[in-house]
């Protein structure tokens, strides 16, 4: 019973649980945290298998950079946008789980059947000059061509991401203040020439997420930021206005 064995039997079930949990939790953020756990566990496994360089890279690149990227995008898309776990495509989930179980069963039974022809050698001799030096030796000698190609791939991917994420809006010419002013007065309606109505219900509530009330008591869509409306973060004006107005009238009397 070596330390590695103990570590494995403690950490492996946890890793599997975390992986399964990834599929079961509703919120994407929770999935991301569980994935980060799996990756750190894997890094530990790497280090345990005499691959310290990969273990460090795993933590730095994956758990650090890649997971940060995931979280960043999650923030962008909406951090609390949670999935409904109800399956919409009929029969898909059942088939998927069955197939996966069969897949896993076949894979494990194949591994069990496999004869490796030799006892596990360990990397003591290979790592004699240090793990990083050994890997560098391979990468910059035997695999230097693949290394160069993959660096080109990385650059291309970065460019591709920039192109894809590029918003065409920013390329439009910005109007000058004078042009905006002219456009406002020459526009379809002069009603908004003096500026859009401010948000909030004066005297009762004042906030950017509450639309202003028009004289007839209806909320004005123009008074709030379209971004908030798009995100669905607009508060009901009713709570502050429509319920209260009749009461005010009565108080006057």
């Amino acid at each position: 019973m070596t330390g590695e064995t103990v570590m494995f039997w403690v950490l492996a079930p946890l890793t599997v649980f975390a992986a399964v949990g990834m599929l079961l939790v509703k919120k994407a953020v929770h999935s991301a945290i569980l994935l980060a756990f799996v990756m750190i566990a894997l890094a530990i496994f790497y280090i345990a298998q005499d691959a310290p360089f990969l273990g460090i890279v795993q933590i730095v690149v994956y758990t650090g950079a890649v997971m940060m990227l995931f979280l960043f995008i999650l923030m962008l898309v909406g951090v609390d946008s949670s999935d409904s776990l109800v399956e919409t495509i009929k029969g898909l989930r059942g088939v998927a789980i069955t197939t996966s179980l069969a897949f896993a069963a076949a894979l494990t039974s194949l591994i069990a059947r496999a004869e490796f022809g030799q006892e596990p050698l360990g990397l003591v001799s290979a790592n004699a000059n240090g793990n990083v030096e050994g890997i560098a030796n391979l990468i910059f000698r035997q695999y230097v061509w693949a290394f160069e190609v993959i660096s080109a791939l990385l650059i291309t991917a970065a460019l591709g991401a920039m192109v894809l994420a590029h918003s065409p809006k920013s390329s439009e010419a910005r109007l000058s203040q004078r042009a905006r002013s002219v456009a406002r007065f020459r526009g379809a309606s002069i009603g908004t020439a003096a500026g859009l109505p401010g948000s909030g219900v004066f005297a009762r509530h004042n906030a950017v997420d509450v639309p202003a009330l028009l004289p007839d008591g209806k909320p004005s869509d123009l008074s709030i930021s379209s971004v908030l409306a798009e995100r669905g973060d607009v508060q009901e004006t009713k709570r502050y206005a429509l319920d209260g107005l009749p009461k005010l009238d009565e108080e006057d009397k």
Partner: peptide
């Protein structure tokens, strides 16, 4: 993706 998974499983089954 499911079809790919099934295909992979079938290949694995064949190897098996």
């Amino acid at each position: 993706a499911l079809l790919i998974l099934i295909g992979a499983a079938l290949i694995l089954a064949a190897i098996w």
